[in-house]
Computed example of a mutant assay.
Amino acid sequence: MANINNKDAPSLEWINTLRKRFPTEQEIDRILTRKMTNRSGPEYVPMSVSSLVRCIESLLESEIGSDFDIEDAKWLSGGASKLQLSFSLRWKPRNDEYEVHPLVLRMEPAESIVETSRLREYQLIKAFEGVVPVPPVYWHDAEAKHLPYPALIYGFAEGVTKPAKAKSGVSGLGTHLPSDLQKKLAPQFVDHLAKIHTFDFRDKGLTAFDIPEVGTTQCAEWGINWWERVWEEDCDEDVPLMRLCAAWLRDNLPVLDRASVVHADYRLGNFLFTEEDQCITAWLDWELGRIGDRHQDIAWTTSRAFASFSEDGKTLMTCGLMPESEFLAQYEEKSGLIVNPRTVHWYKVYNDYMMVALTLGTGYRIAKGGKTHQDILVTWLMGIGYMLLDEMRSLIEEAP
């Protein structure tokens, strides 16, 4: 705890102490270590579109040569964690005629509310092409050799995250869908999750992922080590309930029965659909994805934070689409996998712990340090952390 008052300029000794104390996946360790070693560096400084385009040009020249043009570059709004710039690329992807593709640059700020790997995000999206709807992904600059911060470039997918007339809160929370849309989207929603969890991920180029050992608690240990390390790195407030929760999670670690790809943010608001035919066209935000326990997704998707009531106001609908019992029954039928309620409950506590670490710990740290382009939003999100703490307490009290 010697560095408790110097987390804005952590020593290499303290960083290495945390690495040894909280062992996790190699790529997660790399990005968290990078975050800490860069923390004493400069604050986030807004950059011009033209300067960023020059960086994109450098990346593309290394990938496809110089025969291309970038047009219509502009910032995209929204998102608490990443900077996004849209542009059109005029190039010859098939070495014959020029084509124009609408693309998006997705890039870290100086420090994000959630530090993740652009390489892992790139590999996951690439692996799921043709399995579930995903946007096309093209290139990455995971080491920031060309761009100011790590980034990837992916293509636009058609669709919307909510009906044109629907109202919602931040990140799609509180979206109410009409019943006819629920009936069309719900089967696709369950089917895609089943396909993700039963996907044979081996030999699919997921080199940035470690695979936890089935029949052990390694997967859960890696997870809690990840987020307890983040809490220790970023928090400036002693919250006894966080220490109690970490201890409870370690005392009740679930055994992994099957290793699956976990999306880790599978919910309403993170997929696109077309309003005319009501088909899901792309799953977004794979940045927290891991190879782990499918129950993590089940716990996240069935969270009350993403639920809404049916039109009659009587039935709580999972992600605004269907009753939880129906969701779980359809999932088991389509995936052929059993849902263990005790493991789901553990991951509900785990998910809350993660979100408190990000809101009360990381959100505070990056806003205080001027490291993010979304300082107002992440400061607002800190208020949610205390509600999550109370939910976490209740879940521990109710644990089977």
Rank of each mutant, 00 (worst) to 15 (best):
A142E: 14
L284D: 14
I338E: 11
L256F: 08
T301V: 10
L360T: 06
G78R: 07
L173N: 10
W139H: 09
T343Q: 05
G363H: 09
I28S: 01
W231K: 01
V160L: 14
H192A: 03
A194L: 10
Q374H: 04
V261T: 11
P148Y: 15
S117K: 09
E233Q: 13
T301N: 01
S117H: 03
A247P: 01
R393A: 08
A220M: 11
L152Q: 09
S50E: 15
L32S: 09
L32T: 06
P42H: 07
E111Y: 03
K7Y: 03
E233K: 00
N270R: 08
G269I: 09
R90N: 06
K162P: 00
F306T: 10
D29P: 00
Y266V: 05
S48I: 04
K7T: 01
F22D: 06
A151V: 07
R54S: 14
L103V: 08
A329G: 02
F209E: 13
E25H: 11
T17S: 00
L59G: 04
V262Q: 14
F201G: 09
H140G: 03
I376S: 11
T281I: 08
R294H: 15
A194M: 08
P10N: 06
V339G: 00
C245M: 10
T37R: 12
L241F: 01
D312R: 09
I384E: 07
R120F: 07
K145M: 03
R106Y: 12
Q84M: 14
L249C: 10
L206W: 10
G215A: 05
L328V: 10
E221R: 14
D141N: 08
W14K: 02
L377I: 14
Q26E: 13
G172R: 06
G174Y: 11
G41N: 11
S62W: 00
I384M: 10
E333A: 15
W346E: 08
A110H: 06
H176D: 15
W283I: 13
R19F: 00
P133A: 05
L185P: 13
A166H: 07
Y266A: 09
V104G: 02
R90T: 05
F156H: 12
M36T: 04
E324H: 03
F156I: 07
Y364K: 04
I338V: 15
W231I: 09
G172T: 05
L83C: 03
D352A: 13
S48L: 04
D277R: 04
Q188S: 12
Q330E: 14
T175L: 12
R30P: 01
R294T: 04
E143L: 02
L337T: 00
S77I: 03
L119T: 13
Y347V: 04
D251G: 12
G79F: 11
